[in-house]
């Protein structure tokens, strides 16, 4: 049975005047929790907007959930949810009314939309605030209600554009937990667009890195991490010098990090040889972290590659 893709683009081109924002993007993404990573202005939001026909593409083909958006745009969007980056509520509406309305706009009958709106507001953790006007909500509440309106019609694919923007760490953690549950509990594919590596690293099992309108890396998170140099961060309280000497003897480059931990590039497929070496030397580390900043480094490496490509 052929693998089905939730997102397929071929030669997707979008430009504003002479500035090319998306440069012939070819991409095939299977269902899952997908992270769309890229620096600010990389074209992440434009990419999502082109998929949803919020922006008119210049050329190329786009299929969402197996359907061509040019031919079945309206029908396709019925099965898609979208939480935009910016505030987008309808002034004067209270929370539950707004989510109900969004359900109706997505093709739900009024009664079902109303019931479902309350379910989704429960799901995103909104209590009595739902009976207040959306205009009066805090940033965290606005983010939650955006997710509720994106889910109200039970889509098969949901796009979340920078959903943790403007939130404090606690608010970010709550929203990320919620997004994680969308995919893990319901099987709804999530595309999380963010410039925050931590958000994507925590939730997504597949990463797309976009820079200057091009896809510079695309794979599962595990595969991408494997591509990185095999390195580890060793948390140790004593015998730091002995440990450094031991690594140097093995020809593994190592350095002391700002936080006092030892970073080592061991070149092995797993951490086992590293642990064995330390055990034989009688050194007991507090913790050994595998490729702790892999995504971050990979991101920077991808951006450099992207820059190289575009400058070439």
């Amino acid at each position: 049975m052929p693998e089905s893709f939730v997102i397929e683009t071929r030669g997707l081109l979008k430009s504003y005047g002479t500035q090319t924002v998306l440069n012939e993007v070819d991409l095939r993404l299977p269902a899952g929790a997908i992270g769309l990573l890229g620096p600010n202005g990389a074209g992440k939001s434009t990419f999502i907007k082109c998929l949803l026909q919020l922006e008119e593409k210049n050329s190329g083909e786009v299929k969402l959930l197996g359907k061509d958006i040019d031919r079945f745009g309206r029908e396709t969007r019925k099965r898609i949810g979208y939480a935009p980056e910016q505030d987008c509520h309808i002034p004067g509406m209270v929370g539950c009314e707004y989510v109900t309305y969004c359900g109706e706009l997505s093709g739900m009958p009024f009664e079902a939309a109303r019931q479902r709106a309350h379910e989704m507001l429960d799901f995103v953790g909104m209590g009595q605030e739902r009976y207040r006007k959306v205009d009066t909500y805090s940033t965290g509440m606005k983010q939650r209600i955006k997710i509720a309106q994106a889910l109200v019609h039970d889509p098969d694919l949901v796009f979340l554009d920078e959903p943790t923007n403007g939130l404090d760490p606690k608010g970010q953690a709550l929203i990320l937990e919620l997004i994680e549950r969308i995919w893990s509990e319901s099987g709804i594919s999530v595309v999380l667009s963010s410039h925050l590596l931590h958000d994507v690293d925590r939730i997504c099992d597949r990463i797309v890195i976009i820079a200057q309108g091009q896809i510079v890396a695309h794979d599962t998170l595990a595969a991408l991490k494997e591509r990185r140099r095999p390195e580890a961060e060793v948390v140790i309280s004593e015998n730091k010098d002995s440990l450094m000497r031991l690594f140097e003897e093995k020809d593994w480059s190592c350095s002391v990090m700002n936080n006092g931990n030892v970073k080592v590039v061991h070149g092995e497929r797993s951490l086992n040889p590293l642990i064995e070496v330390m055990r034989d030397a009688g050194i007991s580390p507090l913790e050994v972290k595998e490729s702790p900043n892999a995504l971050s480094e990979l991101f920077l490496q991808a951006l450099e590659t992207g820059n190289g490509k575009t400058s070439a």
Partner: peptide
């Protein structure tokens, strides 16, 4: 209010 984005992203 940018609500136009919500309308355009729905099945409309």
């Amino acid at each position: 209010s940018n609500a136009i984005v919500i309308y355009n992203s729905k099945a409309l």
